[in-house]
Design a protein around this nucleic acid. Structure first.
Lengths: 317, 317
DNA sequence: ATTTTTCCTTCGATAAAATCGAAGCATGAA
DNA sequence: TTCATGCTTCGATTTTATCGAAGGAAAAAT
């Protein structure tokens, strides 16, 4: 009994894309191929990884477990290829892990700062915990995310605030015009795309809605903020994003501002494995927010999730 | 450009076995298959992974890098298969990581204690750092090793001493008899197999040799202690091992005791991700040494490499 | 209620790959 | 030199992956 990594790779793409059809498209093969290979994987493991739901598929419990491993495995594979393919070139690399929930545009803005230093960014996405583990193992230089590292985690990493980014509600074309008048009360009943409930910003927005007696019609919830905005682009609903990205949001998602959400900020963090940043690329990233959105003053202090004075080792008796 | 994981797997086995021929044997395919597939991998990466040396092969620099990744990738694959294949059975699992330097017999003795609890041990080997990372991610319950977790590590883990194991010099057949008389001075000039210099026991032994003006003839150095003893079995030289294993050493390695090394002990450690052990299997392992070699008293205190009072987080301003 | 559309799956033929036998080529030992 | 060992190359063969065609089942549209 041996694991077939090609099957696993197909499984991984399907799980990521959420559909056999899209996975087949991305892989450049026919759907029935993908379907068949996954069937073989399930047979060899003796467990079903997907269960039919509607006309689509959802991961089973075993599937979720497998996805966790697959993420790690193929992240390593990519990293290996990166390290070997042009590792000879040895240009200064900046290995960045990007959390799903972080808007891609924010990530771009942050990493862009390092490009000026003729750094070659190598970006990976993945589950928050796995990215932190890679950080601890020095496979990544920094992780960009929307929440500080969990205090309960077993990894000793350091969270650096990238400041507070004011949040604005956007809408594509007609939507923006329709709800701009009478903001924010106009949002009552308005179609809205929001992050899923495990997201910090979602909590703050819900609170703000409640205190203003606004009950939006939540037409979609997304873990991946890029996906959220892509749906927003189609006019499915209004959506939140940082004020600082207004230009980019207009350009890429064809959306205009509806109104500023007062008192609600999104927090972004750069997580490093060292308290004291040494990598020039990471330093560049940390210096971004002060130039970007901080009319309100410098809000970039360092939060450590660990006591630094390590080594409470008791010798033996 | 896409990494072919089957090719990588062949590369991995060849690198581990040190020879295409043996790898082919282990994989159950013809040598020219293995050779061909590795050639394709090298072509797709644009780098040679093996260089000919004599009539064999050695890893190139790129090959060593690739091996590091491959180790991780296929360890994950194994773990995934383990987790899924009979995960349904959900017998209590005890996932143990075993450091290379730990004698397999010691590992066996320790894990054996958990078997009484009808635990199903799942053992992995690997580089120390990688095992610790797996521990921090809760993919392993405990790591058994010959040194405490590095204080400098970015992982928050706890090292529990498994006591001090007195060390004895062993030798197979004739060797033992030849050097037993006049021990320890007889060791001067004696052929000796020792751990590599990065090993803690090696340091202590060297010190003891020096203070007794003994200069053994070091005929071999090994990272893997099982390999060391296997060579010892052939009569290549004397070798050190814990006294407590005398019976096993005699049985498996056909070697008798030459003499006790006074004042030199080997330290073993169980590393866990929690300060307070909860897993009954891990508890069983921790209780072993007291029953095994401690006429000299109980020497099982807990060493933490971390201050426990976590959460030195500074809020934002 | 029915049709249509959208997905996923199954079946058998076809294309691609991995594999193996045979032969060749180096290196170190006899 | 000759032999033994270990890796590689070449072409035939087997195994595996892939795709066209057809079918079924759930949601959306009528």
């Amino acid at each position: 009994m041996n694991l077939n990594y090609r099957h696993l790779q197909y499984f991984w793409v399907v799980a990521k894309e959420g559909s056999v059809t899209r996975a087949a498209e991305r892989l450049g093969v026919a759907v029935q191929t993908v379907s068949g290979q996954i069937g073989q994987l399930e047979k060899s493991l003796g467990r079903t990884l997907f269960a039919p739901q509607g006309r689509g598929l959802v991961l089973t419990e075993a599937g979720r477990i497998a996805l966790g491993y697959a993420d790690q495995i193929f992240l390593l594979g990519e990293q290996m290829t990166d390290a070997l393919l042009d590792g000879a070139a040895e240009k200064p690399r900046l290995a960045v892990g990007i959390s799903d929930a972080l808007p891609k545009l924010v990530a771009y803005r942050l990493i862009d700062a390092a490009l000026g230093l003729s750094m070659r960014p190598v970006c990976y996405e993945g589950k928050f915990e796995n990215l932190l583990a890679d950080l601890a193992l020095h496979r990544l230089d920094v992780v960009l995310t929307d929440r500080p590292a969990d205090l309960m985690s077993n990894l000793r990493v350091f969270s650096h605030s990238l400041g507070e980014w004011d949040i604005m509600i956007y809408g594509s074309g007609m939507l923006a015009g329709r709800f701009r008048a009478g903001f924010p009360q106009s949002l009552d009943g308005a179609p809205m795309l929001l992050p899923t409930r495990n997201n910090a910003l979602r909590g703050r927005l819900d609170q703000w809605f409640q205190s203003n007696s606004i009950r939006p019609d939540v037409v979609g919830e997304f873990e991946d903020s890029a996906l959220l905005m892509t749906f927003g682009r189609t006019g499915l609903g209004l959506f939140p994003a940082p004020v600082a990205l207004a230009g980019d949001v207009a350009e890429h998602f064809n959306a205009e501002s509806v109104g500023l959400v007062p008192g609600v900020q999104e927090h972004y963090y750069a997580i490093s494995s060292e308290r004291r940043i040494r990598h020039p690329g990471v330093e560049a990233i940390l210096s971004v927010p002060r130039n970007l959105d901080s009319e309100a003053g410098d809000a970039s202090d360092i939060m450590s999730n660990q006591l630094e004075k390590g080594g409470g080792s008791g010798g033996k008796g």
